[in-house]
Design a protein around this nucleic acid. Structure first.
Lengths: 226, 226
DNA sequence: AGAATTGTTTGATCGAGGTCAATTCACGTT
DNA sequence: AACGTGAATTGACCTCGATCAAACAATTCT
């Protein structure tokens, strides 16, 4: 795999990401010092469970799926990260071993930030430590949210909840485009693609229109009640 | 609720916990400065979702269950914390609002560490920041583990996995006592009590003996294969 | 445009686990 | 030791979502 230096666009994506938003220029520069970029095809594996990993990753373009493997080869998605999101930070605190697998969904560009460097900088710059804590907290929260939804909601309810997460508070009617294929959404929600499909048709009765990747909501309240 | 200062035993539990183990005495003392203790009965609520919370908690004795509520009133356990574990640290990074409920299981004593203070100390002492990051990481990991197990394993497999987590690597035969009632274990594993019961009897065919809270394993390999 | 490939939907079937009701068991109390 | 209460088990039933197979739609490739 060919590794490149950051170009100016890459840098812009990184600096615009949630992680960097509250960092001083000095702190940001220190982190990006020595960062590298790699390009990946459709199903490339970025790292695998139990393998050594010495970077924290950031999606510069494309999409990354983080998942665990069962003994039988089945896969369970832990999270899906879009452009601008950092991931793989857990290994940094667990002896540089990955606790999950990561795979590119569609062709993607990925930045790698040296985790040894990042660890050292976190000791010097309290804001970096703070940013890392917030990152860890958000990711922990994401996992807890998923866990709670899996245990409390049916498939249509989970889909409704996902849709509502994309709908601004005020509006009763709203439409948006899915940021990825339906089978990716299915994985993210812990569903088989068929179940997602059926969930969408159940929601159709509550004013949700699905055409390809376009989702239209005609009655926000109905969705919330679901 | 009556709040007390830490007694020497309380302090010993805190200092012996995973969170404090790598901290300097100065750092630990600074955190414990102003910590208070509360006593709780069987089903006392420590905090509730969306409520303001300005402490990080530590179980000094007893057990605490952290869970989310569904619209219909059903509960989904996120984690169960035994003596010596910190919890509730997420609120610290999310505007001091709880993202879940916490309840004492059986009568418990709980320490409260002021989170504003802790936040400030994390800026001064890099080890404290580091300890917080490790805590957040462990808790995130716990949630991810649960999520993956829920999605990949059947009820008996989850129970087998739980048992194996308590079985030292070497031994093929082993026994231990459940640290809590079965209905708590059921909640933790995302199962109805009846399902846990049935899972145990399924495992009986693979050399697991259950008598009250005592669990005996007669064939570690058989469990692993399950 | 037409073919080929991949993604999505639909139908039919099946199994895991939830729920409710009825016992049975374990354990603390007297 | 006997009792009583709450916990755990068992049985019957039912719902949700996984799986398999097939039809259908949408892309990409030539």
């Amino acid at each position: 795999m060919k590794t490149l230096r950051l170009n100016s666009n890459d840098k812009a994506v990184l600096l615009g990401s949630r992680f960097f938003e509250k960092l001083s220029a000095a702190a940001s520069d220190a982190i990006l010092e020595g960062a590298v970029v790699t390009n990946h095809e459709e199903h490339d594996i970025l790292f695998q469970q139990d393998e050594p990993v010495d970077s924290v990753f950031c999606v510069l373009s494309g999409l990354v799926r983080v998942y665990r493997l069962g003994k039988d080869g089945r896969e369970a998605d832990i999270a899906v990260f879009p452009k601008g999101e950092l991931f793989g930070e857990n290994a940094m605190f667990l002896g540089n071993r990955a606790t999950a697998n990561a795979q590119a969904i569609g062709s993607s560009t990925i930045a790698r930030l040296d985790s040894r460097n990042l660890r050292k900088l976190a000791e010097q710059y309290p804001d970096i430590a703070q940013a890392l804590m917030e990152l860890l907290c958000r990711h922990g929260q994401m996992a807890e949210d998923c866990l709670a939804e899996d245990r409390l909601l049916t498939a249509p309810q989970r889909v409704a909840s996902y849709i509502l997460g994309h709908c601004p508070d005020g509006s009763t009617t709203f439409s948006f485009r899915l940021p990825f294929q339906k089978n990716v959404l299915a994985g993210k929600l812990g569903l088989a693609p068929e179940a997602l499909s059926r969930a969408f048709s159940a929601l159709r009765r509550s004013g949700v229109t699905v055409k390809g990747r376009m989702i239209e909501i005609h009655d926000r309240q109905a969705l919330e009640r679901f």
